[in-house]
């Protein structure tokens, strides 16, 4: 599995993640937001809102439940950015 910080998007996702966490964490790509990082659903939504602000994307609300791990968050951002480039 590609580590989450293998590129700029991955690194920026981790920066946002740490800010929402409000404590030092070293997540891997397969770290789950809930069980490993202790996010509740409100924090997950806060994380998504912060990602939107950082990357200038909109994550449709029905896609939010699919973001369960750090890697899924990175992939979600990547694919939304790709859609923006090639509309």
């Amino acid at each position: 599995m590609t580590p989450p910080d293998a590129d700029t998007v991955g690194r920026d996702v981790l920066t946002v993640l740490r800010r929402v966490c409000r404590r030092p964490v070293e997540p891997a790509a397969n770290s789950t937001l809930a069980a490993d990082l202790g996010f509740d659903s409100l924090q997950t939504l806060e994380f998504v809102a912060e990602l939107e602000d950082r990357f200038g994307i909109i994550v449709p609300i029905d896609q939010v439940p699919r973001i369960q791990t750090v890697g899924e968050a990175v992939n979600c951002v990547r694919s939304l950015l790709a859609e923006n480039v090639h509309p």
């Binding site: 659903s41 409100l42 939504l45 806060e46 998504v48 809102a49 609300i61 939010v64």
Partner: peptide, 9 residues
């Protein structure tokens, strides 16, 4: 407004 829209922002 949808509940999730509020909870997100």
């Amino acid at each position: 407004l949808s509940p999730l829209a509020f909870l997100k922002r």
